[in-house]
Amino acid sequence: MESASKAQILSRLQSDILRFQGFKPADHLDHSAWLGAINQSFPNATFPTGAVHEFIAPGMEEMAATSGFVSAVASHLMKSHGVAMWISQRQWMFPPSFKSFGLDPDRILFVKTSKEKESLWVMEEALKCGALTVVVSELCDLTFTASRRLQLAVEQSRVTGFVLRHRYKKLSTNACVSRWQVSSLPTDSIDDLPGIGFPKWKVELLRIRNGYPNTWNVQWNNGEFNISSRQTEPISIETEAQIKFG
């Protein structure tokens, strides 16, 4: 009897702590349904909105895969009326392609900056603006101080930020809520027909605050995720440790 109440108290305290840290409880079901198995890794089993997520994408190919995954996630967050901002120093995003990930390209504001520092300034300003739903920024490096500033900006406005790190020099600890890596996987043929199937990625959640890192195979099937866990690899505390310490 007493132990049961103790467990209750503990779980209540835990959820309180999560709330204080800015994680909202799963208020509506459709919100959590779309990420399927991935949700189990998040605190409260909900994708953390109003936070900054970090994606690492060393090469162009990884960048393309990451953009695909991020725009699919963003399309779910934005629903029908949200607006996204995409900040980049290069003009390599191809706007019409977003449509195939459920994101209307005309609901994205593209900002072209001339240097890294400017991108950070624009991202901070954009994250403070509650009229946006999603802000994506392509950055090379992200210091702890910079990431902390982004996190502070987000706490007021509840905007979700994605930092896509391309050609980074080093991966240090920062204040982002998670760290992901998305890479392409060979596609599965549709009905044994030749040709390329639906886009398929290996999605690694390397780090997540208050959650459980994991790796999945994710397929984008005409508007929804098809997610399967990867059994082969041991789970990832090691991976995080590797990143932290060398």
Binding site: H81, G82, V83, P95, P96, P105, D106, R107, I108, L109, F110, V111, K112, T113, S114, E118, W121, V122, E125, A126, C129, G130, A131, L132, T133
Partner: peptide
Amino acid sequence: VGGFEDIRLTELADNLSNKIGSNALQRYLP
């Protein structure tokens, strides 16, 4: 309300084009 009609978004756009030039902010149509 959020979305393109939101006054906060217009103000953000003003801020950005004021700082980094009016061509920096683009929206694309088919």
